[in-house]
Nucleic acid binder design. Structure first.
Lengths: 169, 169
DNA sequence: TTCTGAATAGTCCAGATTGACTATTCAGGA
DNA sequence: TCCTGAATAGTCAATCTGGACTATTCAGAA
């Protein structure tokens, strides 16, 4: 559902073909979703069947023909509805990485600490990488700001956890 | 992969059947994953085929026989490996709800604000609900602490966003 | 005692997802 | 010019996922 909103929103700004869409999402929207290429193509086909998109073959140079999608009025209507829903709702995020925390007591304390420090390192690196990104234009910047805020909070929490575990030895 | 860690970890503490496992996960681990019942059964079957679990039919009262799973030594080995990996790694969380934020400029500013306030309300309610939960025993408490910390950060961020948008009118 | 709705236990199958693959184009080096 | 590896564009088959379903048990109301 939200992946459809994502694709519609991009097509609203500009006609694009599948590869292009996937490329953009992978480069700029990794904090929202992890959309694989075949899934993107599948979604585009589905939305075309529904009449939300109008594909047209396009030739560029002598590359093989690509299917370029344009959003239809029905697609725009769907976008509007999905957007309103999305903005008004709080969607939970799932923390796969916390499953291990639930079983932390199965690990010898020193090893647990060592591994958590490893996690801390990659998390800090990720945050540093993100902080180095030059400011983007438009609403996309909110995504980066949010991600930064979120990673900062994760790092804080991880540090508290490590401190706690260190205290107990 | 992480869902397997989750199931193995529970079966390590106690033999259980599918319904029981799913029930527990739904009640206590919603912050880590959203594991549907049929998926849980599917995973249990797969792990059994791999030799990680040993199912045995169990009769309780005159209920229909249930398949009760016990973790095998191979399963314990898999658990250890998965746990170490999980603890040492930072897994990104995906914020489906931010897709809409990327397209916020497609909404009239007053409406965007109204909808974000709606989101704020449900987020605050969720946090309040969580804060009311009495402390749990053992490592599971980390999950609750983390979730609380995370929701607090989300709420802070949402408030900043709303303020920003209000300032621009 | 009988009935009803909730809880328990699990399954089916339609549809979503993705790892791995094909095939073409293109830039640059030898 | 020819070759190689990266980028472009998309597809296939196998697996994973979950909405909707069946069926039994149980507690309490009538």
């Amino acid at each position: 559902m939200e992946r459809e909103l994502l694709l519609l929103g991009l097509l609203r700004r500009e006609d694009m073909h599948g590869y292009q869409l996937h490329e953009f999402i992978e480069r700029n929207m990794t904090s929202c979703t992890d959309l694989k290429k075949p899934t993107a193509y599948h979604l585009l086909e589905k939305m075309t069947e529904r009449g939300w998109l109008q594909p047209s073959p396009a030739q560029a140079g002598n590359r093989p023909a690509r299917r370029v999608y344009r959003i239809t009025p029905a697609g725009e209507a769907a976008f509007q509805a999905l957007l309103r829903e999305n903005v008004a709702t709080h969607y939970p995020a799932y923390f796969t990485g916390n499953i291990g925390l639930a079983y932390l007591d199965a690990l010898p304390a020193p090893e647990a600490l060592a591994r958590l420090r490893e996690r801390h390192t990659s998390l800090a690196a990720e945050l540093a990488r993100l902080t180095a990104v030059p400011p983007h234009a438009g609403s996309l910047q909110w995504l980066i700001d949010h991600q930064r805020h979120h990673l900062r909070a994760e790092l804080d929490w991880l540090e508290t956890l490590i401190q706690h575990l260190t205290a107990v030895e």
